[in-house]
Every structure is written in structure tokens, then in C-alpha cells.
Simulated assay, not measured.
Amino acid sequence: MKYKILEKPECEKAYELVEEALRKRATIILFACCRVEYEGRALSQLNWGERIILIKPDGSFLIHQDKKVEPVNWQPPKSRTRCYLKGDRLMLESHRRTPKELLSVEVRHIQFINYANVEDYEELEQAGYEKDMSDMIMKRPHIIEEGFTPKTREYAVEHGFIDILGKDSDGNLMILELKARKAGVNAVKQLKRYLQDMENTDNAYLKECKVQKKKIRGLLVAPSIMDDALELSEEEGIEFVSVEPPRELKRDKKITLDAF
């Protein structure tokens, strides 16, 4: 990894380092006192304070305070960064073309600035999310109940998308709402809205899959459920099924003779 670091540089030296880093498409980190203005879909202003400024080669521009996970201001990839000097201040600007947005940072009292040419070609692998639960249920529908037949995923209704739509062994319609973490009251309310959407609609899908509208069952599927959510689900006639999301990453899978 090639990198450069300057401690407590004058703004002119910092400007030269940023220009060099932008030419080399390097990742830039500044810890400095700055003031921030944003103009675009809205307007915002952040007065002087010590912050971390992170500029990535893909155009991402992030400003972090000493609290919270999310940046306080940011611009997405494909934004264009430029820098210039204004008196004794270093000015950084991030321009986004569509929609038009401008993030302007006035910098003073730089503690340190560095850039590095980072090499990282790996993609993040994830497990234990709703998508993984959905994949698992589609392959092994019996974990919901014997006789359950899933028909479709991400089915659009007025208030969102039903995670899995299917039918039970008696031909009743089943609406599954999946949560990879402990389910709360909001999950119950969300599922209730989906049930109302299906009950209030002469749905073409029901005709296509020839499911008689005898009964529409709502199932909240999650590892566990909060007490108040369980109480509400029982009041609304919503069923709860405890299912743990799979936790296995692809890289953990080993090829054995069972695969042949």
C-alpha cells in the first residue's frame, strides 16, 4: 500500500496532497476543524467543529462527527471532488450531477491528512438476513408447516411487498412476513396491512394459482417475538412461527461426496 501522511500541515501543503491524491485516485482522510454547507434537494449548514473527512476514489464523500454510525453529511459514488485555496483556508467541494447537489467544506486547523492507494477486490458475503430466510423456506417449506406450498416472493400489494405468498394443505392463502431479528409490534402491523390489502382486492393472482379464498392466514416468521407483539398478533388472529435465519456463508461451505 502506497501512502502519505502530513501532521498539522499548512493549508497550502494540504491542498497539494489532496490534489496529488485525486490524481492518483487514492483514498483520502482528513481530521480537521471544518464548516459544511449543502445545497441540493434541501439546504443544510453545519458550523465549525472537529470532524473526519473521508474521500474515496469512487467519488464518495463523507463527513463524520464523533458520534453515530452514519456520516452527518455525504455524497454518493460518482460525485466529483475538487479542492482549492481561499485565503488561508482549504476548500473541498463534492458535486453531484443528477440530481444537482453541492457539498462545500471549509477547512482550517488540520490535525493530520493522509492518502493511501488501497487494494481490495473482495465482495462482502452476508448471511442471516430476510433474503436468506426466504431462500431457505422456498427450498424447505415444511419448516413453516407440513403441506405449505410457497407460490411467489416479493408480491406487490398496496402497502408494500409480501415476502412469501403461498397456500396451506387445505388451499387457504398464506401470507408470510419474514424478520431476521426479534419481531416487534411494527412487524405485526405491517402484516395486518398486507392481510387487509389481500382481503379488499379481487386479486388476479388468486385466480391464476386457483386458490379458493376460503381463508387468508397471516404468519409472522422470526427467531423470536416481543411480548407486546405476541399479544397484538393474537388479538389480530396472526400466527407466529419461530424460524432462525441461516448463518452459513458461501465460503464456509465445503464440497463433499454428498454433492454428487
Rank of each mutant, 00 (worst) to 15 (best):
E123K: 12
A32C: 14
A259Y: 15
P245W: 04
A222C: 10
C209N: 12
P223S: 11
R51F: 06
I28F: 04
C209L: 08
K253D: 02
D132V: 01
E208D: 11
G59C: 08
E39P: 07
L124T: 07
Y194F: 09
R153L: 01
S94R: 11
R82T: 12
N47R: 10
R25Y: 12
K78A: 10
E19A: 06
K151I: 11
K253M: 14
L249F: 10
S134M: 14
I144W: 00
I175H: 02
L232H: 07
Q45I: 12
I175C: 06
G59R: 07
R82N: 10
L232M: 15
E20F: 03
P71F: 07
Y194K: 00
P77V: 06
E50L: 10
F260S: 07
D66A: 05
G237P: 05
V241Y: 00
Y3C: 02
K4I: 11
T149V: 14
K8C: 11
K151C: 10
L173W: 04
L165T: 05
R51G: 05
L191Y: 04
E231K: 15
Y38F: 15
P71M: 05
R97L: 14
K8P: 04
L30Q: 04
F240K: 05
L6S: 03
D66F: 07
H159I: 07
